[in-house]
């Protein structure tokens, strides 16, 4: 099977500071990979490199059997979707945010699809008209997550998206991510959460910009 990601000696540096070095990594389609490691070790940078928000300064990065650099960036980012730790919501209402993925694809807003997405994270259709300023942290993160999933990507990159969420919201988010993974979406998740690390099916440790340990946790 062609790996979804293949990294050969990937490095990333800013000025003289080496943030990622000699990363060798292969990820198969449909895998759920958990990235852990100390703060500032380069986990988020690795995720951003995979999302093409940063370009590696050395090494080779292959996506789906093709060099990442050869992909059209817009098409790629719609297939490899990056979720931020502290997402910022756009416009004024929840609808503005859920309309964005339709707008950029020049498609009409689909109310049914948006409602189903809201319900998948235990929110209701009435949320659509709610002002983003009145949302709780958990609601914001859920709206941001379904904004990434309205048009299901092939890969979901999660950058500590459950940090600061309460137990109930975390469970809702985990449920949706697991469902997506079961449907074949590859998930790569950066986390500090001990529960998530313990439950990881494939755990990778990033330490000082290097991939230190690769182990099958479960």
């Amino acid at each position: 099977m062609t790996p979804i990601f293949e990294l050969k000696q990937v490095g990333y540096k800013v000025d003289d500071q080496q943030i990622l070095q000699q990363i060798d990594l292969t990820i198969q389609p449909g895998e759920f990979v958990t990235l852990a490691g100390p703060s500032g070790s380069g986990k988020s940078t690795l995720l951003r490199v995979l999302a093409t928000l940063l370009t590696p300064t050395s090494g080779e990065l292959w996506y789906n059997g093709q060099a990442q650099a050869s992909y059209d960036k817009i098409t790629y980012r719609r297939e490899v979707s990056y979720c931020f730790q502290q997402p910022s919501l756009f416009g004024e209402t929840v609808r503005d945010n859920l309309a964005f993925p339709f707008d950029i694809r020049k498609q009409a807003f689909d109310d049914t699809k948006a409602t189903e997405a809201l319900e998948s994270v235990d929110l209701t259709a009435s949320m659509l008209t709610k002002a983003i300023t009145s949302l709780s942290g958990g609601e914001k993160q859920r709206v941001a997550l379904i904004r990434n999933l309205l048009f299901p990507p092939k890969v979901l990159l999660l950058d500590e998206i459950t940090t600061g969420l309460d137990g109930t919201t975390k469970a809702i988010v985990h449920r949706l991510i697991n469902t997506m993974n079961q449907r074949g979406i590859t998930v790569i998740s950066v986390t500090h959460d001990e529960g998530e690390i313990a439950a990881a099916s494939r755990l990778l440790q990033v330490v000082a910009g290097r991939l230190e340990v690769s182990a099958d946790a479960k």
Binding site: A51, L53, I74, T75, R77, R78, S81, Y82, F84, Q86, P87, S88, F90, F100, P101, I104, A144, R147, N148
Partner: peptide
């Protein structure tokens, strides 16, 4: 900056 990054990450031109 963050909002622009998010739009790019969602596949906006």
């Amino acid at each position: 900056r963050q909002a622009v990054l998010e739009r790019l990450a969602l596949g906006a031109d």
